[in-house]
């Protein structure tokens, strides 16, 4: 197993997600479902690491990808004006994907995963809506919200299938990757709404925010390296792949 093999597995997984939510009209106006490859990697990690994996588990993992895609569609909705046909259908694409994940899990009779994912979605929404609240949050609280957005559903998937030993890697790595992405946007002068809101935690001092986030990134990077070095169950090729993604 090398990086190419892993990348191919992720690509195939992404295609499978698309196939499960195929819809002619939605595809024409909203395109293919949006998936984050790092999240897909962590959904596949137990399989890549040789854990017992069958068709039903694969399909369950696909539903987690579908839920992410569903919520990603709703993240595309403009705050003020969603009157275009494309935006209207984007709302429906998210709802349709949401119905499809439920339909697949209902067919499999996988009630525990339905429960875990719906709990996870509710928590994720509670964190995502924070940027519209007037409450003052600390940077640590914002990091937690970013983490919930990117890791909660995968964490729930791990819980259902007793893959919790992967949670630490997943949690640390996905938060780290997301902070790197957000920081880059900030440095390019195009901060996300979330980062603009985070700025309030440091009195809107952009330089200070950059510094603090960089500190957090470095701390997460150290932590992840420690985990990778001390892990006895993760295959070396996977450790290498994770490290390569950081570069």
């Amino acid at each position: 197993m090398n990086a190419t093999y892993i990348q191919q597995a992720i690509e195939e997984f992404k295609n499978n997600i698309s196939l499960h939510v195929r819809h002619r009209t939605l595809a024409r106006y909203t395109g293919l479902p949006v998936s984050d490859e790092s999240q897909l990697f962590y959904l596949l990690l137990p399989f890549l690491n040789g854990e017992q994996w069958d068709g039903q588990l694969e399909e369950s993992a696909i539903t987690v990808g579908i839920v992410h895609a569903s919520l990603n569609e709703h993240d595309k909705i403009d705050e003020k004006n969603a009157t275009s046909k494309e935006q209207q259908l984007t709302v429906l694409a998210g709802d349709f994907y949401s119905g499809r994940y439920y339909e697949i899990l209902a067919r499999l009779g996988n009630i525990p995963l339905i429960r875990q994912l719906s709990e996870g979605i509710a928590i994720r929404c509670e964190h995502q809506i924070k940027i519209y609240e007037s409450t003052h949050y600390t940077l640590e609280e914002w990091y937690q919200s970013i983490s919930v957005k990117h890791t909660e559903l995968i964490k729930r998937f791990y819980q259902v299938y007793q893959f919790e030993h992967y949670t630490t890697f997943m949690h640390t790595n996905l938060l780290l990757l997301q902070l790197q992405k957000e920081l880059q946007q900030l440095q390019n002068g195009k901060p996300s709404n979330l980062f603009m809101k985070m700025g309030e935690s440091v009195s809107n001092d952009e330089k200070l925010l950059e510094l603090k986030v960089l500190e957090e990134i470095n701390s997460l990077r150290r932590l992840l390296n420690e985990y990778l070095q001390s892990s006895t169950f993760l295959k070396d090729e996977l450790k290498l792949y994770i490290q390569q993604q950081l570069v």
């Binding site: 909705i77 004006n81 998210g94």
Partner: peptide, 15 residues
């Protein structure tokens, strides 16, 4: 706003 409506709707669906 629209986003608050999206998250609220998703929250209610999930519940």
């Amino acid at each position: 706003n629209n986003r608050v409506a999206m998250y609220t709707g998703d929250f209610i669906f999930a519940r």
